[in-house]
Simulated scan of single mutants.
Amino acid sequence: MVIVGLSRNRDTLESVKTAVGLAGGLGIKEGSTVLIRPNANTADPAPGSTNPEVLRGAIREVKRCNPGKIIVAEKSMSPLNTEEVLNRLGLWQVAEAEGVDEILTFDHMIREHVEPGKAYSWPWGFDVPEFLKSIDYTIALPVIKTHWTATFTMGLKSQISITADRDRRQLPHGQGMDVLFGNMIAESNLVYKPDFYISDATKCFVTDGPNIGTLREPGIILASPDVIANDTTGLALLKTLGTVPKIQMNSVWAQPQIKRAVELGLGVRSKEEVTVKGSGVEEINEIIANLA
Rank of each mutant, 00 (worst) to 15 (best):
R260N: 12
E272V: 04
L141D: 11
T42H: 10
P67D: 07
L156H: 03
T232R: 03
P129E: 06
G213S: 12
A40D: 06
D208N: 13
T275P: 02
I284C: 07
T233C: 12
T105S: 15
K157Y: 07
S121C: 13
L291A: 03
G90M: 06
K69S: 04
L80T: 06
P67G: 07
R8G: 07
I70L: 06
R64V: 04
T240M: 11
S188Y: 00
E98W: 01
P52T: 08
P45H: 04
N51G: 08
S121R: 03
Q248M: 10
T153D: 08
I59R: 13
I185P: 03
D107Y: 07
E282Q: 02
A201P: 03
E130Q: 14
V16C: 09
T232M: 12
L215E: 13
T275F: 06
I135L: 08
A292G: 14
D101W: 08
N250C: 02
L6D: 03
T105V: 10
F126M: 05
E273K: 02
A43E: 15
V252A: 10
T243D: 14
T149G: 01
K271W: 08
I135P: 10
H108E: 14
P52E: 10
I160N: 07
I36L: 02
A261R: 01
K277L: 14
R88W: 04
D107H: 06
N189D: 15
A261S: 13
N285H: 03
A229Y: 00
C204A: 15
V227F: 10
L238S: 03
P256A: 07
A150S: 15
N41R: 14
T33A: 03
V191L: 09
I36S: 06
R60I: 00
